[in-house]
Design a protein around this nucleic acid. Sequence first.
DNA 1: GGGATTTCTGCACCTGGTATACATATAGAC
DNA 2: GTCTATATGTATACCAGGTGCAGAAATCCC
Lengths: 213, 213
Amino acid sequence: MDGRPGLRERKKQRTHAAISEAAVTLFLEHGFNQVSVAQVAEAAEVSKRTLFAYFPAKEDLVVHRLADHETESARVVRARPHRTAPLTALREHFLKGLRERDPITGLNDHPQILKLARMILDTPSLVARMQRFKAGAERALAQALRETADTPELTARLAAVQIVAVQWSLAQDNTERVTYGEPADERYPGAVADAEHAFALLENGLRHPPQRP
Amino acid sequence: MDGRPGLRERKKQRTHAAISEAAVTLFLEHGFNQVSVAQVAEAAEVSKRTLFAYFPAKEDLVVHRLADHETESARVVRARPHRTAPLTALREHFLKGLRERDPITGLNDHPQILKLARMILDTPSLVARMQRFKAGAERALAQALRETADTPELTARLAAVQIVAVQWSLAQDNTERVTYGEPADERYPGAVADAEHAFALLENGLRHPPQRP
DNA sequence: GGGATTTCTGCACCTGGTATACATATAGAC
DNA sequence: GTCTATATGTATACCAGGTGCAGAAATCCC
């Protein structure tokens, strides 16, 4: 019944944060592959062994921040208003992400986030680690579709992989443009149009694609 | 104009094959993570350094065999008969793969292939390496759609990621079932039905999914 | 055969990640 | 406050994947 999680717990959280922060700072300054985990451990004033007790692999020092997003689509589908189609809820949620410049949509150009995004996209092992989240997102979304929309097994899995792939593609495109120098505010209208086009494609199929390029 | 590629070239090909064969043999017998590259090099009677001259990473000892499939969908789209929709050509090609028990469809239950497939799916680093082929397949297919069907940039990319994701999902499902013990011939009708359902979903969209589960 | 050029090798080395054995700090009972 | 069980951190040594380098060996071409 205590509001505070105890000293031990708090210390763990601080250590976790300290390691993560030291890592990102060093990576942003010198590059992911140019910094060894030993250097990160030293900067965080922690032994290498302890670092690996908090993060299972070097890549997780960077991508653990994205772990929350793994189940985001599934949560949106579960929490959708009554009588609303899953795809509608997902589209509205994605558009809201664009409006709010949620980094997950790729439409955030704060220098720190931008540099981090570029680093991830330029580092194959980090991209590979991100794919795991994608796979997790597919599984979670498929389950949500099955449980809340009575979607049959196969259809749920297929719909999930399509939806996740499309969202990922949209985000990656935005990230690519923004890290290439296009301001987020300038990209915004195009990003909205692209997202609407993409969700229309998902809804209506590839046979009769909408006019818009 | 010479039919023969010279002794040097032939030797290289033989070395390449010898390393690959030794690797797969050892991996199938003891497991991917249980065999070190040094052991593979020794079995192939080659130095470790030479092994890495032929294969950039341990994982490539296994997955290099799938490199050809990276551009398969793109090739199918490019080589489709006149007046045929890309999706139609891809469906026919996938169904042909199922009929012929092409391992890429997951519907081949020869013991060797089956064991290899299970090993890949059970080894995260191998799965990660496969994702790169997936990404390559997406890029190649998007380009083929742009060039041969005048599909606009964005639509081509989105269609490509959807199509590749769906094919991948179908193949993975078949592999999962077959490696779990279901004979390929027994799975075949279901695999065909699933593929047809999946392509129908791609064509008609997620709004009005076909009846079939 | 002989020299230029590739290819192969052995060796040292770096880095990510783990096992082991030991030290230290915290929690909770008294 | 003290004591003890337990969770957490550390030092060290180690393994495996991967690379750089210098020189040996094979191939090519004349």
